[in-house]
């Protein structure tokens, strides 16, 4: 139920945002191709997400790891 409460506004947001998207030509991708614009994260952030999954009751969505370690200390 709580999940649906979050998911529905996000879908609504997508519906609002998608028509506002403008086509980007290959020669216009200089900003989008910048390393800082990439969604993937380097190993240091993956390590922090792993710590987060241990030191809180939740996991970061889209992070590399959701189990596979004790983290029980």
């Amino acid at each position: 139920m709580k999940f649906r409460r979050i998911l529905l506004p996000l879908i609504f947001l997508c519906v609002l945002v998608l028509p506002g998207c403008s086509a980007v030509k290959p020669w216009q991708r200089v900003y989008l191709n910048d390393p800082e614009m990439q969604m993937s994260s380097w190993s240091g952030i993956t390590f922090e997400d792993y710590v987060h999954s241990i030191r809180t009751g939740s996991v970061v969505s889209g992070s590399k790891k959701s189990s596979g370690g004790c983290g029980c200390n």
Partner: peptide, 10 residues
Amino acid sequence: QVINKRLVAA
């Protein structure tokens, strides 16, 4: 989704 040449969201 690429929104425009400066903005991307996921």
